[in-house]
């Protein structure tokens, strides 16, 4: 018998396993950041923001762009791409472990399925928060002098985090239900592209009832619309609050579905099939 160190007793049930989600979050964050995947994604993200911010600041065709618009353009790219990166990380979280054969060992521990999901959610959100932190110097350099730096930083943190939370939860659901990691990643990217599509609607169509509804129902489109309305059009933060319903509702609903369904869908086979 083991006598050299403390072990989990054969008969007693240790109390700490309820903090298993924190242990999983810590392990996944270490793998993401110390393993090199997170830093590489951040380098790509920063290169993209560098290009966008430099073009916004220099392009003669856009020269009539006011600074607020330049900040808004950079912020929109930062938010959309940051959320995409977090979504892709979430899409890999469960299906990836399943494919690498490491999920079974995790599920055999006393940590609940909800705990496993919560840990992975925290790790994926850490990627969004890192993206947000990387966007700060760009927002500062473009927005200083017109008093929009603080506004844009707070907007991106609040709205970006709500949007990222909702989409990370959607990504985890997709990951749990997908047969393969490739299918999970492809479906998640498709979801984000589909959600970004209404932002490209022609102005005329966007102003129709259908176009308006499409933007309001879409968590990404409505979040970007709200940011533009506050930052560029100078509308008060409360005037277009209804546009925040979609990202907030997505986060709440997807979170509730995960909470209820996690014990059944976080299994060895996709969606509880095995």
């Amino acid at each position: 018998m083991m006598s050299t160190a403390a072990t989990a007793d054969r008969t007693a049930r240790p109390a700490l396993s309820r903090h298993g989600w924190l242990v999983i979050a810590g392990r996944d964050c270490r793998e993401l950041w110390a393993g090199g995947r997170g830093p590489v994604l951040l380098v790509g993200y920063s290169v993209l923001l560098s290009c966008v911010s430099y073009l916004a600041a220099t392009n003669q065709v856009l020269n009539f762009l006011e600074q607020r618009e330049a900040v808004n353009l950079t912020l929109q790219v930062a938010l959309a791409v940051g959320v995409l990166v977090a979504l892709v990380c979430a899409a890999d979280a469960i299906s990836g472990e399943r494919e690498r054969g490491t999920l079974e060992a995790l599920l055999l521990t006393p940590v609940s399925r909800r705990g496993v999901v919560a840990g992975k959610l925290v790790a994926a959100l850490s990627l969004w928060l890192a993206c947000w932190a990387v966007s700060l110097p760009y927002l500062w350099v473009l927005g200083r002098g017109v008093a929009v730096v603080a506004e844009s930083v707070l907007l991106s943190l609040g709205i970006g985090t709500a949007t990222a939370l909702g989409l990370v939860e959607v990504g985890l659901l997709i990951s749990a239900l997908s047969d393969s990691n490739r299918a999970s990643l492809a479906l998640s990217v498709f979801v984000l592209i589909a959600l970004s599509a209404p932002t490209q609607l022609p102005t005329g169509l966007a102003n129709t009832a259908v176009g308006g509804a499409l933007i309001r129902l879409n968590p990404v489109g409505s979040a970007l619309h709200y940011v533009s309305a506050v930052l560029v059009r100078g509308r008060g933060a409360s005037r277009d609050l209804s546009y925040l319903a979609a990202p907030v509702l997505t986060a709440v609903l997807a979170g509730a579905v995960l909470l209820v369904a996690a014990p059944r869908i976080v299994t060895l086979g996709a969606g509880g099939r095995r």
Partner: peptide
């Protein structure tokens, strides 16, 4: 209008620093 000169150092420095860390 925007000051492109101010944006350049940030546009270069941020990816370089992150690349070195990676």
């Amino acid at each position: 209008t925007l000051n492109a000169g101010g944006a350049l150092p940030v546009a270069v420095a941020v990816p370089v620093l992150l690349g070195l860390v990676a």
